[in-house]
């Protein structure tokens, strides 16, 4: 059904009211997380857009603290799975165990049965464990024995990868990385932020507790509104231009990128970009998407979906470099 200007105005007002919790969440998380606003914002985008987030950053950047705090603020269940080479799929999804007293097998649910999952160092576990997790992420359900269990909504997986240790790791295949809506690269806090972190950690009263500000049901409702955010045809074309420029850069006067790209974004990239742009607009308390929304989340949606050639790697060209070139070449509507 075609949206009229009146519909969009009403939707805008509705979203303006409904998205007020975003500010509340930011305030609450700000009590314990110093800096890392970018990461927290991306986590919320993933949460609202029903996508999962792959985090890349060195240890000690408050990755665990962020997602734990987020789950506390939303009053949701949180699980942390440390991925190791000897981890088994059953350790993630659960298994059947024999109950001697009852003389029957009963299901023991794994840590995946939570709203927020932190899959720490996902690339340390072998492929079968990774695929078990990724399957659960995609299907939002797991099967143990003969029984299939639906995972609770909201369900958000935050997987982390350590970029500095590659020995003894199982790199995620491109097809599985593509299942993550966002790949967020986080850096060190600033000097001032780190000074706050020291003070906060050495506080004699201990860390401030996070109070729940919303419920998981509110997130589910917010997701419905995110879906309704108006996206104009011009924005859709802009998204497609960006994704197609990663596949056929020569069509966008970017012939020099052709030898650097081995493969471009998949249709899932276009979908994710549209979803994430809508979520971003929602978080900015708007009922419509503007080009800024697309550009703001473009790097996080696209960086793991652009394959680099050996030539690019030899020249130290990153996917971010390529995306910058593309964004500077594709006309904004």
């Amino acid at each position: 059904m075609e949206n009229t200007s009146q519909d969009i105005r009403q939707l805008n007002e509705k979203i303006h009211q409904a998205s007020a919790f975003v500010d509340l969440l930011n305030i609450e998380l700000g009590k314990v997380i110093v800096g890392q606003r970018y990461m927290v914002e991306r986590l919320l985008i993933g949460l609202l857009a029903q996508g999962h987030v792959l985090l890349e950053g060195v240890p000690g950047l408050a990755k665990t603290l962020s997602i734990k705090s987020l789950s506390s603020a939303i009053n949701a269940k949180f699980s942390r799975i440390q991925f190791t080479p000897d981890l088994l799929p059953a350790d993630v999804v659960g298994t059947m165990i024999y109950n001697q007293q009852k003389n029957e097998f009963v299901v023991r649910r794994g840590p995946i049965f939570a709203n927020f999952i932190l899959a720490d160092e996902i690339n340390r576990a072998p492929a079968k464990v990774q695929s078990a997790l990724l399957e659960a992420m995609q299907e939002k359900q797991v099967t143990i024995g003969d029984t299939t269990f639906k995972l609770e909504e909201p369900f958000l997986v935050l997987a982390t990868q350590n970029p500095i240790e590659q020995e003894g790791t199982y790199t995620l295949p491109e097809a599985q990385v593509d299942r993550f809506m966002l790949k967020v690269v986080i850096g060190y806090p600033t000097k001032e932020e780190e000074r706050h972190i020291i003070r906060q950690n050495l506080n004699p009263d201990g860390m401030t507790a996070i109070n729940p500000v919303i419920n998981p049901a509110d997130i589910v409702e917010a997701r419905k509104l995110v879906r309704q955010v108006y996206m104009d045809e011009k924005i859709e074309r802009y998204i497609l231009d960006i994704v197609f420029a990663t596949r056929h850069p020569e069509d966008y006067k970017l012939q020099k990128l052709k030898p650097l790209i081995s493969y471009g974004g998949s249709p899932r990239a276009s979908i994710s970009l549209a979803w994430a742009a809508k979520s971003y607009a929602f978080m900015k308390r708007r009922g419509y998407v503007i080009p800024e929304d697309v550009r703001s989340i473009c790097f996080d949606v696209m960086r793991h979906r652009v394959g680099l050639t050996y030539e690019a790697e030899a020249e130290n060209v990153t996917s971010e470099n390529i995306l910058s070139e593309i964004l500077n070449a594709v006309e904004v509507p």
């Binding site: 009229t4 200007s5 104009d232 011009k234 708007r286 419509y288 503007i290």
Partner: peptide, 10 residues
């Protein structure tokens, strides 16, 4: 202009 272009503002 952005509102007119992307939010169907009249």
């Amino acid at each position: 202009a952005d509102l007119a272009k992307f939010a169907k503002l009249q």
